[in-house]
């Protein structure tokens, strides 16, 4: 016996999760570029895009609830749906971190950024995006092994965050009059660091879907 309707809808929902993830990836990439160029119009577009991300997340959530209500999923099917509900929450929250960056950009002084900062922020966003992309690929494929490996890469983002932190601390010491400007840049880096942290949650849900095991990766920061 097969369950074509349920299988098709589950595949569609997982595909929609990938779409949601790619929307957030694009925003993350754009946010550090808009910051580098102090492009406030671009920043506003990124902020507005967050609404689309939220809307898409709710569409997926409704799809999950409809399947639970109408198809009585059990075992692996039920775990996929439970995991999708968790994963979309994480992705949406990652979108909020990026929205936070976009919100900060117009508040920054239109003056040159600390020398290494744009590249380091680019790298943080790039690594975070790469982790997100591969975590979602593993989620869609039910690849437990990949899901167990990816969270360790967060150390690299943490390392970059440390470098950014020191550069900003030095800048703030040299320019105490620009405390607002530097504090906002701290927030940008912090949001990118938290962005990458969230990938671990997605990996935890992939492991749950594959094995039923509810586990938690130990992370450097709390939420």
């Amino acid at each position: 016996m097969t369950r074509t309707a349920l299988d098709e809808r589950l595949c569609q929902l997982v595909a929609e999760v990938l779409t949601l993830g790619s929307m957030v990836e694009q925003s993350a990439k754009d946010s550090v570029a808009a910051l580098r160029h102090h492009d406030t119009a671009w920043a506003r577009k990124i902020e507005a895009r967050d609404q689309l991300i939220n809307t898409h997340r709710f569409t997926i959530e409704r799809g999950c609830l409809a399947l639970i209500a109408t198809q009585q999923p059990m075992a692996h099917d039920l775990r996929i749906l439970a995991a999708v509900l968790e994963v979309i929450t994480d992705i949406e929250r990652m979108g909020d971190y990026i929205k936070g960056i976009a919100h900060i950009i117009p508040q920054l002084h239109p003056e040159p950024l600390p020398r290494h900062l744009p590249d380091r922020l680019d790298s943080m966003a790039e690594h975070g995006n790469s982790m997100l992309h591969r975590a979602l690929t593993a989620f869609a494929a039910g690849d437990e092994q990949a899901a167990r490996a990816i969270p360790a890469e967060d150390d690299l983002v943490d390392e970059l965050y440390g470098e950014v932190y020191h550069e900003l601390a030095e800048g703030l010491t040299a320019h105490p009059e620009s405390v607002d400007h530097y504090t906002r840049l701290f927030w940008v880096a912090h949001n990118l660091e938290r962005f990458a942290d969230r990938v671990s949650n997605i990996c935890e849900r992939t492991i749950f879907t594959a094995t039923g095991e509810i586990m938690e990766f130990s992370t450097s920061g709390g939420d």
Binding site: T2, L6, Q72, M74, A75, D77, R79, G212
Partner: peptide, 19 residues
């Protein structure tokens, strides 16, 4: 049994893919 069965046969039955 309904969220995390150990055996494939149970999984197939409770998910409606067999029986």
């Amino acid at each position: 049994i309904f969220t995390k069965p150990e055996k494939k046969e149970t999984e197939d039955y409770v998910t409606g893919r067999f029986g």
